[in-house]
Design a binder for these strands. Structure first.
Lengths: 337, 337
DNA sequence: ATGAAAGCGCTAACAA
DNA sequence: TTGTTAGCGCTTTCAT
């Protein structure tokens, strides 16, 4: 069996408390005593049992992060940022994925698998407000992403409408006028407004440019294939945009592949702007102009929000916390330099 | 404070044990009693404290996975597979990343951050055998990846030499004769043999094709930029391969970008084969031929290995466990169909 | 500065 | 079938 505090105490001929004091770097221990205990610790190869410590303290030092899927580089990169942000506060991260399925998201929010945690960061895709309304779990929760909820949980995102408008404005500035939006989810009727779609519409309207429905491409998901299919469908329908603003980089990349297959040149025939600034967009035959959310800031804000509820024991407030974004201009709108 | 078993027991007017029996779905409980206890549980909103259970059972149900970085889609996709494989056995996954830094890898292997775990899956990049030799941590460990160690820990990988040979054979079959290898790490002198490089050399030699040193491109890392720099350096040196076998897909993608910039057409001027089969390779202007390791199998084997040491309490054996791979042929060697 | 002892919430051996 | 009780290993008053 593993050595415990008691074993060390016996070996050193002192009480458990003293050993505990040494382990926890308590101030008032005589150097001699400290050395003696340390020797016993080293000899026995003692390592504290964190589970016991957690039970006693009521904290585990673990926070969970649940994202739709790690195969989406945005979430993988975000997860990396969260791990780093958590580590700064000596927290470690339990990772789960929901496949973007509502049922999975609900389970996670209720603490289905990860009940050993001090807090939960959830990035929902399908979750509805109602699902969180009767939440029984008392673990602090913070929400990430474009979806908006009117709930007593902090929500962290960038200003999606402003970001979308920035992207569309950039395209207009490059002389485009038939700007498509790729990535509308029209499958579920009562789905709340898509903020990026809204931003697209607002900016076009303000510029006095038409925003017809046939320039809005619906998708079944937000991956490369979904983008490819949506782009193909639009072109097959005879619609010929001179620019595409995609829900995210993956959709944009899928769309670019189809444009390439059809002999349409990016950006000359069709300019493309994505969203997320995943590393993949910096390579490929045509690098991708994209909205770059500050992932580090999002991660830091999320962890800080959790820490806040953890320390204050205050009631959750449902604050809207906003991270910065910037437009990164690359070849898919500028062309090769 | 949270409700505990005791609270429920009092409320229901039964003993703690009975409540525990109900919670743990113990067989021999009368339906009436079960209903009564369940009612109390629901009324009080009782949720078991897993930390206490863990302390008692000596197990946490958590395994840790440490990869170099989640920004590399291969590791992100692998992490997803591990999460799924672990979930099948009711384990959750704590994720950590090492940035491929030896020091971080050592810390993780010693249980630096994640000491609340039942097992550890580590995918090392820089770690040396010596680092693991004096390992104090008694948590079961399993190693992943190309590096080979002669240590009493299970190691899971595909047959890297065979995989590399398959890739090179494919290129030879496409009529290529000046096949470069991109991704040699020559920075640390005493680095063990690079199995993929070895496979490249073996296959060329067997085919009676020269394998000169100037066709071996050294890299500083295994990301897209490293691939781009290595490719550029080789071309700048006046070396003109007609094919490139890259250490992984990211290096291949970086190389393809440079080839594109220089007006060299893939696959006509230069064919490219990668390694990992990340989703990104299926898109882009030219889809990527690649060696596809069975990530699900790797994940399953890793989890199974951990479970084995957990249950058997047997001494670690240092088995070599091999997952399958296959070559996925795409446009970067076949051209557009 | 150090020790004694209670107890965090749970499981499991033993009793009834 | 259900109850009693002894810890799992640690932290933390309260004494000394």
């Amino acid at each position: 069996m593993r050595v415990s505090l008691k074993d060390v105490a016996e070996r050193a001929g002192v009480s458990i408390k003293t050993v505990s004091n040494v382990v926890n770097k308590y101030q008032h221990v005589t150097p001699a005593m400290r050395a003696r205990v340390q020797e016993a610790i080293d000899e026995l190869g003692y390592r504290p049992n964190l589970t016991a410590r957690h039970l006693r303290k009521g904290r585990t030092g673990i926070i969970a992060l649940a994202v739709p899927e790690l195969g989406n580089p945005y979430f993988a990169e975000l997860a990396g940022a969260v791990i780093d942000a958590a580590a700064e506060h000596d927290f470690t991260v339990l990772l789960d994925h929901t496949r973007g399925e509502r049922e999975q998201e609900v389970l996670v929010s209720q603490g289905f698998r990860a009940r050993v945690i001090d807090g939960l960061i959830l990035s929902p895709l399908e979750l509805e407000s109602d699902d969180l309304l009767g939440r029984e779990d008392d673990v602090p929760l913070v929400l990430l992403g474009e979806r908006q909820y009117n709930l007593p949980y902090d929500h962290i995102a960038i200003d999606n409408v402003a970001a979308a408008r920035t992207a569309v404005r950039h395209l207009i500035g490059r002389g485009r006028s038939r700007i498509a939006y790729l990535g509308a989810r029209t499958d579920s009727a009562n789905r709340p407004a898509n903020l990026r779609l809204q931003g697209w519409r607002e900016e076009l309207t303000q510029a006095g440019i038409a925003a017809p429905d046939n320039l809005v491409g619906p998708v079944g998901g937000w991956n490369r294939w979904d983008g490819a299919k949506a782009m193909a469908r639009m072109l097959d329908a005879g619609v010929r945009p001179d620019a595409v603003f995609a829900y995210n980089d993956l959709v944009a990349i899928g769309a670019m592949r189809v444009l390439h297959e059809r002999g349409l040149r990016v950006p000359w025939d069709v300019a493309v702007v994505g969203f997320d600034d995943i590393a993949e967009g910096q390579f490929g035959a045509v690098t991708l102009t994209t909205v770059s959310p500050d992932k580090q800031a999002i991660a830091r804000l999320a962890v800080a929000s959790l820490l806040r509820s953890l320390e204050g024991e205050a009631e959750p407030e449902g604050r809207e916390l906003t991270a910065e974004f910037r437009l990164v201009e690359r070849e898919s709108t500028l062309g090769r330099r």
